[in-house]
Write a protein that binds this DNA or RNA. Structure first.
Lengths: 204, 204
DNA sequence: ACGATCTGATACGCTTGGGTGTCAAATGAG
DNA sequence: CTCATTTGACACCCAAGCGTATCAGATCGT
């Protein structure tokens, strides 16, 4: 309880603590995004972050807790970039949103892997499903007020597109798709329009 | 080296050995398909199979080896059902093939999880990617002789459809899609045709 | 019935990783 | 300079899981 709080290395106690937490998050992104969550231990994280175990438990109490924090950091960043792009698209052009999303998922294979694979396993399942749900609800923000049989079909297409995005990102990172980033974006815009022919509720 | 080989429990030595191997494979499908490969140990497999560790090492030398065998068994069964259905479709109707595939992936959530999640992690990555490649090449069997820019775009759509299939199966098993199996099949046939507008090279 | 073999249960040694503790060196306040 | 605080390196105990070994009961051939 004695908060001595003095400056060390030019930083206050809170600053040092936050900086260590950020290093742990960065180490988690690196290792979780390459080896996979299940293959990473606390010792690995500390080695990658250049810290000792004491400072791991300073911010987190388990590997799963760190994994959740990393996942939320990644998805929050992504949402923060995509949502304004959706608004910029004016509700009828999916390209800005797709561009924003793919700039995150194509630029960093670790992000792609976290979203497409790790978010479906172990302690991240509920958070991964939650993110998928958020994305699908976002999708429905474009085309509301559907009912009955078509509502289910539309929802299916939302999940279909989400899965398509993930798989394409993984395949592209694996090098099996010989396309530029812009080509991938163009093609996925095409996929979007193919999946939602009634998409832009503008002049129909 | 002394192969005594005598009958026990009404089975020959080879029969008993095969039966134990099958029980291990079944236990692997159950546990890998529910908890995930990374969360399963040899002891768990043996408990599920009702065997002791000695008989695990009789057929496999590690958890990863069992996981590969389970994955290959599942995918081989699937291929054995899908390929004839492709032929039955005559190269222009995707419905039989999709029906065959989804009868496997929708009837058994463990199969869906193995294909969509576990096949991308750990020791199964190469085999999972190999299966995806097989599926994509199968896709190209329908629409050959494309070249240049369109070849990449078509390949992207193949991976997109594969990802769509996986994600829809997972979502359906999670109960977020309130559709019957037949409705899912119908809708995915629609997704297929949407992704491949030039699909049936019949009377265009 | 008897002996050899097959099986299941259990135990043991070993390694790995989590969680905690100790101690000396580095740093900053007075 | 002196001393309290902060930090890093290292040691330690413990639980879990792997791989192997042991042993009694069950089963089969003769």
């Amino acid at each position: 309880m004695t908060e001595s709080t003095r400056v060390y290395g030019g930083m206050s106690a809170a600053e040092r603590r936050d900086e260590r937490r950020q290093r742990l998050l960065a180490a988690g992104l690196e290792l979780f995004g390459t080896r996979g969550v299940a293959a990473v231990g606390i010792v690995d994280i500390c080695a990658e972050a250049g810290l000792i175990k004491r400072y791991f438990y300073e911010s987190f109490s388990s590997i799963d807790e760190l994994a959740v924090a990393v996942f939320e950091q990644v998805t929050d960043r992504l949402v923060a970039q995509v949502v304004p792009a959706i608004i910029a698209g004016g509700g009828h052009d999916p390209r800005p949103a797709l561009t924003a999303y793919l700039q995150g998922a194509l630029a960093d294979p670790r992000v792609a892997r976290l979203l497409a694979v790790e978010g479906k396993t172990g302690a991240l399942t509920e958070y991964g499903n939650g993110f998928a749900t958020r994305a699908v609800e976002l999708w429905f923000g474009f085309s509301p007020a559907v009912e009955g049989r078509d509502e289910g079909a539309l929802r299916l297409r939302a999940y279909a597109f989400a899965g398509a995005l993930s798989q394409v990102c993984l395949a592209w990172h694996d090098g099996v798709l010989d396309l530029t980033v812009d080509q991938v974006i163009d093609d996925l815009v095409g996929v979007f329009h193919a999946l939602v022919p009634e998409a832009p509720r503008q002049a129909r």
